[in-house]
C-alpha cells in the first residue's frame, strides 16, 4: 500500500530524449556548413598558437618566466615559477605542455570574446540576467560527457571539440564577474558621468569598464583556471597533451606517472595564476597612481 503512494507513478513517465536526438540530428544536418567553418577557424588558430609557442626554445621560456616573476613580485617568486616550469620539462612533458597550453589559450581567448560582451549586456538588461544566470549554472554543472558526445558528432574528434568543451566550462566565471564588476560601479561615479552628458558608449568605455577592470581580470583568471581543469576531460575526446598522459597512467594503475602528469597540470595552473594575478595587481597600481 505504502509503496503505491511512495513510488513515482509509472504512467507519468515521459521520455523526452527522442526530441533531443532529433534536435541534434537537425542541428548537424542544417548547420553542417557552420560547424565546418568553426572547425577551420579553431584549427587555424590552433596551428598558429602552437607554432608560436613551439618555436621558442625552452630556456627562453624559463628565462622570460623568471624575469616576469621577478618584475611582478620578487626574485624568489621568479625562481620558484621558473623552477616549476623546469620541472615540467624534466618530467618529459614539454611538448605535451605546449599542446595543452594552446588549447587553454584558445579557449580563454574565445571565452573572452564571448564572455565580455555577454557580461556587459547582462548588466544592462535584467531580463537577460534572469535568463542567463540559470544557463550559466547549467553550463558548469552539466556533466561534460553529456554534451561531449554531441560535440563529437558535430565537430569530429580532437582539438576542436576539446576547445569547444573547455570554452563551455570556462566561460561562465568571466560572464558573471564582468556583470558583477559593471553592476558594482559606484552610483556617484555614474551620476557624475550622466551630469557631464556622456553617451551610453562613453559611459561604458570611459567609466564602467575601467572601473570594473579589476573584477573582470579576476574573472579572466578564474576562466583560465577552469580551462586548465578541463584538460583531462578534453583528452577523452581525442585531444593530446598532458591530460592524455594522466589518462594513460591511471588506466595502467601507474600511480607515480599519474602524479607526475597531474602535478604538471598543477604547475601550469600555478604559473598562469601567478602571472595573471601579478599583471592585474600591476594594473591596479598604475590605475591608482593615475
Amino acid at each position: 500500500m505504502w509503496q503505491t503512494i511512495r513510488d513515482f507513478p509509472e504512467r507519468l513517465y515521459f521520455d523526452y530524449s527522442v526530441y533531443i536526438d532529433r534536435f541534434v540530428d537537425w542541428l548537424s544536418n542544417t548547420f553542417e556548413w557552420l560547424f565546418d567553418i568553426i572547425r577551420d577557424v579553431i584549427l587555424t588558430m590552433f596551428d598558429g598558437v602552437e607554432f608560436v609557442l613551439g618555436v621558442m626554445p625552452w630556456w627562453l621560456y624559463i628565462g622570460l618566466l623568471f624575469i616576469a616573476g621577478w618584475r611582478l613580485y620578487n626574485v624568489k617568486t621568479g625562481v620558484i615559477l621558473s623552477l616549476l616550469l623546469f620541472l615540467i620539462g624534466v618530467s618529459g612533458l614539454w611538448d605535451e605542455m605546449i599542446y595543452t597550453l594552446a588549447i587553454i589559450f584558445i579557449s580563454v581567448f574565445i571565452s573572452f570574446l564571448i564572455g565580455l560582451p555577454t557580461g556587459i549586456l547582462m548588466s544592462k538588461s535584467s531580463r537577460l540576467e534572469s535568463v542567463l544566470k540559470p544557463i550559466l549554472d547549467g553550463m558548469q554543472t552539466l556533466p561534460s560527457f553529456v554534451y561531449l558526445i554531441p560535440a563529437l558528432m558535430l565537430l569530429g574528434i580532437g582539438r576542436v571539440p576539446a576547445v569547444f568543451a573547455t570554452t563551455i566550462y570556462a566561460v561562465p566565471p568571466l560572464i558573471r564577474l564582468t556583470f558583477l564588476g559593471i553592476k558594482n560601479v559606484d552610483e556617484q561615479v555614474i551620476e557624475a558621468g550622466i551630469s557631464f552628458g556622456s553617451t551610453p558608449m562613453q559611459m561604458l568605455f570611459k567609466i564602467e569598464l575601467p572601473q570594473a577592470l579589476a573584477t573582470i581580470a579576476a574573472g579572466l583568471n578564474q576562466t583560465t583556471m577552469m580551462a586548465v581543469a578541463m584538460v583531462v576531460i578534453a583528452s577523452m575526446i581525442g585531444a593530446r597533451g598532458i591530460g592524455q598522459e594522466v589518462l594513460i597512467a591511471i588506466r595502467q594503475i601507474n600511480v607515480g606517472d599519474g602524479f607526475v602528469a597531474g602535478l604538471a597540470i598543477v604547475f601550469v595552473a600555478i604559473i598562469l595564476d601567478r602571472l595573471l594575478q601579478g599583471v592585474t595587481a600591476r594594473f591596479d597600481q598604475t590605475m591608482e597612481t593615475e
Binding site: F145, I149, L152, M153, I157, M236, I237, G238, I248
Partner: peptide
C-alpha cells in the same frame, strides 16, 4: 595510428 582514450569516443567516430 591515433589512440582514443575513451571507447565512447571511439564508438562515436564509428557510428557517425
Amino acid at each position: 595510428f591515433y589512440p582514443l582514450e575513451s571507447t565512447a569516443t571511439l564508438n562515436v567516430t564509428l557510428v557517425d
